[in-house]
């Protein structure tokens, strides 16, 4: 079976009316960008992949990740990482504990701490382990959210307007960081955005909805 993320004839309906239909394969290291105005069902498409579709929607078709059909797996067993436009760091945990939450289980305490510290220094956040996430800047939070997600060893990456809350300078920086990482790890990326610059920077195929 081919590696990558496949949306096999996925059709989403709301109260019987068709909303979104997509049939694509995203190869490892590639980015598929889904564009369209808000309310067109972009985020709903992602919730089919994460397994958190709201109850007033119905989806048909299959979601296949690295050859495994994950259509009916519970969200926490899908190995799909997601970044939202808000960082959604857990406010009750320190920066380090947020990352440790993402890190797969196993390893000694010192081992895990070292991995977290290493992840922090990779994105220029040395010494941030004990910080309160609420005290970080927008760009720093975005980097923590990215590393938290990557530490969970996802097999695919979803981006839900992930850069739209950042200011222009941070935005380009964070964007290239995310795409570089995804390419280095050979992850298929499904991005939804309404921003043409995001789409251009991704460099992959662009699907426009609505």
């Amino acid at each position: 079976m081919p590696k990558g993320l496949t949306l096999d004839q996925v059709v989403i309906t709301k109260n019987g009316a068709p909303l979104v239909a997509l049939d694509r394969h995203i190869a490892p290291g590639e980015v598929l960008t889904v564009m369209g105005p808000s309310g067109v069902g972009k985020s709903t498409l992602l919730s089919v992949v994460t397994g958190t579709l709201a109850s007033d929607f119905r989806a048909t078709g299959r979601v296949v990740l690295d050859g495994q059909d994950i259509t009916h797996l519970p969200p926490h067993q899908r190995m799909v990482g997601i970044l939202f436009q808000d960082d959604l760091l857990f406010p009750h945990l320190s920066v380090g504990a947020n990352l440790a939450f993402g890190l797969r289980t196993g390893g000694t305490r010192t081992d895990r701490r070292a991995k977290v510290e290493a992840a922090l220094s990779e994105v220029g956040l040395d010494g941030f382990f004990d910080r309160d996430p609420a005290t970080l800047s927008g760009g720093q939070k975005a980097r923590v959210a990215l590393m938290r997600m990557l530490l969970s060893n996802p097999c695919a990456l979803l981006l839900d307007e992930a850069f739209s809350r950042l200011d222009t300078a941070r935005r380009a920086q964070t964007r290239s960081l995310v795409f570089d990482r995804a390419r280095a790890l050979d992850l298929p990326v499904l991005m939804v955005t309404h921003d043409a610059e995001d789409a251009a920077a991704a460099g992959g195929e662009i699907v426009t909805l609505g």
């Binding site: 994460t50 519970p74 067993q77 997601i82 797969r104 997600m149």
Partner: peptide
């Protein structure tokens, strides 16, 4: 959703 995507049951 984020917590589940990170593998939390």
């Amino acid at each position: 959703t984020v917590a589940a995507a990170l593998g939390a049951s």
